[in-house]
Amino acid sequence: MDSVIEFASALCLLTGSFFCLSGGIGIIRFPDFYTRMHAVGVTDTLGAGMILVGLMLLRPESLVLIKLIMILLMTLFISPTASHALAKAALRSGCAPLLYRKDKE
């Protein structure tokens, strides 16, 4: 039973790391600010979520679990607020997004 939980936790940590790394590559690779914001969204939602779930599986008893849930909830509530405020400030200060044009096809 213990080894099953350990395996599940390792799997969660691994997927979380993969999503975080992909987001990190995305923030370097994408062409403009607005598209980079989506890459950060990946690391904030599923990347952080999977890593925290992986940690929760390691200590499923005590207060540690509750604190990890608290951190997860905070990340999930805070990250959209911050990215919305950032995008709004950028658009209002005239930072024009790169847009995809149909006639390029």
Binding site: F33, R36, V40, A48, L52, I71, L86, A89
Partner: peptide, 23 residues
């Protein structure tokens, strides 16, 4: 290139710090 890219990077750095401290 823009100010907002830098703020975005700082924000991401901060959330990753939270994960790093927990780990």
């Amino acid at each position: 290139p823009t100010l907002y890219d830098r703020i975005l990077a700082v924000n991401m750095f901060g959330t990753k710090t939270v994960l790093l401290i927990s780990l």
